[in-house]
Design a protein around this nucleic acid. Structure first.
Lengths: 184, 184
DNA sequence: AACATTAATGAACAGCTGTATATAATTATT
DNA sequence: AATAATTATATACAGCTGTTCATTAATGTT
């Protein structure tokens, strides 16, 4: 069931301007140094308008991250029955394409949002892959294995981005793919 | 070469009072809700005194975390040639003993400090354990394997603490030990 | 005990935050 | 086109932050 109620144009316009302003400012300074006043000035809206849509600047960042995670979910749907190494590739390419956003965001106090959302997303993706009834993980704790895999994925992505993507997406996808196969 | 120059008693007294105040306040509210004014009032020092010792409240938290990491380094030195499952145990026990501090800290915007410091510490511990010249990791990228292992360790510890330690330290140590053996 | 050094204090400051409110402008609907 | 509802604006406010500075207090060393 899709929501068909029209959203007031003013809301879309304000939110677009605000998010666009953040992207612009991110290429000029660290997210932690960007003030709500900065964003309002750049977006050409009243500072109060930002608080009308978001709790604070971290909530704003959180929602921008959420939109990226949704993009990655869509990418994921199209690789449903590939091998890990192959299915990983679109994600690493997507991260690379949005390097400025992700690197600036990860260098800020809002990095927690990304980690939380990406973690939740990956838990959904991998939770059915863990088998402790037979095979290599027989007898182990499924919850701990799932956390082990997912946090390593989140962590390696964060490492890759904050270290200026030292390897190309296809190398990352392949190496991470091998590590996933070994543990799942 | 140990530093023998005496530290002014007032410095020790102020810093002790400040750190003690933070610990106290942590049992009353989330770290993000604690203000520098709160800390100054509780520690019975002038607000300016805190800025005399620390850049801001996150720098203060960072230094408190650093002291815990140092404790864990000391624990580590005594388990140098044990199996992973055994060597892990003192860490998980230490984390359990300081549950209030770690859980409150991880629920804040300062969680990044812990992750960074614990990550750096583990890199030092594990960097010599990766062998890509023979064995299970032959031909793989050593840097990526190291990041994979270390971030999963940091992540699983964070998961364990923020989820109210759902398993006792010995179970965690054993399960994580198995996962480490498999990948190193 | 007297001294020079260092640390702590209190007050003042500009700037940002988050909230509230009255007013104006825009929108969707009739 | 007129209307009611919604959104945006400007302004004001109290509280916190991080810095500065002159003054006072405590410390370690002669």
């Amino acid at each position: 069931m899709t929501q068909v109620t029209k959203v007031d144009r003013r809301i879309l316009k304000s939110q677009e301007a605000i998010k666009h302003a953040v992207i612009e400012l991110m290429s000029e300074k660290k997210f932690d140094d960007i003030t709500v006043q900065d964003i309002a000035d750049r977006a050409n809206v009243s500072r109060g308008t930002i608080y009308l849509h978001y709790l604070d600047k971290f909530d704003l960042l959180d929602k921008m991250i959420g939109e990226h995670i949704n993009e990655m979910k869509i990418l994921c749907a199209s690789t449903a029955d590939m091998e890990f190494a192959e299915a990983n590739l679109p994600w690493f390419e997507y991260l690379e394409q949005n390097y400025l956003f992700f690197s600036t965001m990860l260098a800020s106090k809002g990095a927690h949002s990304f980690r939380r959302q990406f973690h939740e997303f990956l838990i959904e993706e991998f939770k059915d892959e863990v088998n402790i009834l037979e095979g290599k993980n027989y007898g182990l704790n499924g919850e701990i294995i799932l956390q082990f895999i997912v946090t390593s994925y989140v962590g390696i992505v964060e490492w890759w981005i904050t270290n200026d993507m030292p390897y190309p997406p296809d190398v990352m996808a392949e190496q991470v793919g091998i590590l996933l196969e070994r543990n799942l």
